[in-house]
Design a protein around this nucleic acid. Structure first.
Length: 206
DNA sequence: CCGGTGATCCACT
DNA sequence: GTGGATCACCGGA
């Protein structure tokens, strides 16, 4: 009965496509030094066939990490916030999973300190890592972490779930303007830290 | 709801 | 080289 016999204690095979990996990442944990977050909400982004993906129009300086080997972190800035993805798929295929929200399991004091910078209102435990930008801030992830190897024993580590969530929900991705009907968002149905669904104001299906 | 945010990309000089 | 549209967001009202 070694590690690996129980599907709840191994990481998913990240060299598969994001759509296969995403639901299995719900419940896994991301550790950044003293702060550990249990992932409760993710979204799959395919490469060439997904108009909502940063890689849809091919390789650029920004998205180069997405085309590299799986298990690395793709970090970018959006509207002044840092967001991060776990790169999936074989090398050369730009498919990745956006980490949208988590529950802070360890290092809550540090996470809270980071979140309260330039913020007036109080912050509940539920909201410490709720939302893609907030999750990165709680973990201290910056654009300097773009390309970091999550399986290489460095400061950032992806860890297996202790146990699988009882139920994983799925539905359309948040705030995407194209392919807005694809149910490629996955979340732990029991978690209060899952962010609220928001449809893009000019959403187009397809 | 609304405005700020900051990088990136492309169509044009 | 420059301008403007775009974007997988956040916070406060």
């Amino acid at each position: 009965m070694g590690v690996g016999c129980d599907s709840g204690v191994v990481l998913p095979d990240l060299s598969r496509h994001a759509l296969d990996v995403a639901p299995l990442l719900v419940g896994c944990r991301l550790q950044a030094g003293p702060v550990t977050v249990r992932l409760v909400e993710v979204e799959a982004y395919e490469g060439g066939a997904d108009p909502a993906s940063h890689a849809y129009r091919g390789r650029t300086a920004r998205n180069a990490v997405m085309f590299g080997p799986s298990g690395h972190l793709y970090v970018y800035l959006l509207h002044g916030s840092v967001c991060c993805n776990v790169v999936c798929g074989p090398e050369g295929v730009a498919t990745a999973v956006l980490l949208r929200a988590g529950e802070v399991e360890a290092g809550q004091d540090l996470a809270r300190e980071r979140r309260l910078v330039r913020r007036a209102s109080p912050l509940t435990d539920r909201d410490l890592a709720r939302g893609p930008g907030n999750l990165c801030r709680a973990l201290g992830i910056t654009s300097a972490d773009n390309g970091a190897d999550l399986l290489g024993g460095g400061g950032l580590q992806l860890l297996p779930a202790e146990r699988r969530p009882a139920a994983v929900g799925s539905g359309p991705r948040v705030n995407v303007s194209t392919a807005a009907d694809r149910p490629w968002r996955f979340w732990d149905a029991a978690s209060p830290s899952v962010s609220l669904f928001k449809r893009h104001p000019r959403a187009v299906t397809g």
